[in-house]
Computed example of a mutant assay.
Amino acid sequence: MKFSKIIVFIGAVSMIMSCSTNPFTQKKTLALVPNSQLFPTAFAQYDQFLTENKVITGTAESAMITRVGQRIAVAAERWLNANGHQGYLNDYKWEYNLVDDEAVNAWAMPGGKIVFYTGILPIAKGETGVAAIMGHEVAHALANHGQQRMSAGMLQQVGAVAGNIAIKDEQSRNIFNQAYGVGSSVGLMLPFSRSHETEADQIGLYLMAVAGYNPDEAAELWKRMKANSGGQAPPEFLSTHPSNDTRINNLTKWAPLAKAEAKKFGVTSFK
């Protein structure tokens, strides 16, 4: 089987198995692992992480993380209910924790488990900045990006196995493995990841606006993120994330649309 046929085979499998729909974009998404299996595993991994790290509680900052998370989650539920997705969040178990770590990062696990590191708070510069980050992370959870990444990784492995079975000549097989590793990563997995980040940026912007936070702050946040990075970043096509400039431009362009969306829910002034 030629390399091109292997790729076609993988594409056909992915189309057949694309049985979930992103409620925000209406796009079909990869869902080889159902949430009924994925969520309990994610919850257990999250609990394990919390036992192995210093979780900060009882402070103004930890209270802010929880408060913002709850407001964003309520906004998400309002949006989903208004757009015909009642019950979408039934299996989600929202939890927001602040962890003592200098890393400039925050992340979400499938099913609504979210962590903020203390290292990102100085760049957030307050509640609205935290809301921009929180909206992005909640969006990842709502759009089932973890499920999609896992599914894509499984298909990537299937392609590698199929190629190694189909190609009998060892030299040709070695060439295939090198080409497939680079090609599937740069040509498929990295663009896939960047598309998730862009999707989460836009969905998160809308959610923070519906929650009453000024969406203009999101672009300002990424300007600060860019300054903090010192311009050290790989070329966009080799990165899992869009470039800082791409994100800033997108968020600036989308902010008026987010305000218009918030207005549908009676939100016309922002924090």
Rank of each mutant, 00 (worst) to 15 (best):
F24P: 12
F24I: 14
K28Y: 13
T29W: 09
A31D: 14
A31I: 03
L32C: 05
V33M: 04
V33R: 03
N35A: 07
N35M: 02
L38Q: 09
F39Q: 07
F39N: 10
F39P: 04
F39L: 11
P40M: 15
T41Y: 12
A42D: 09
A44E: 13
Q45K: 10
Q45S: 12
Q48F: 00
F49M: 14
F49K: 07
F49N: 03
L50I: 06
N53M: 08
V55M: 03
T57V: 14
T57G: 02
T57I: 10
G58N: 11
T59E: 07
A60L: 10
S62C: 10
S62K: 11
A63Q: 13
M64A: 11
T66H: 11
T66K: 15
V68W: 04
Q70P: 01
R71H: 06
I72F: 08
I72L: 10
I72Q: 07
V74C: 01
A76K: 00
A76L: 00
E77Q: 15
R78G: 00
W79T: 12
L80Q: 08
L80Y: 11
L80W: 05
N81A: 14
N81Y: 07
N81K: 12
A82D: 11
N83M: 05
N83T: 15
H85G: 00
Y88A: 07
L89V: 04
N90R: 12
D91H: 10
D91E: 14
E95I: 05
L98Q: 01
D100L: 02
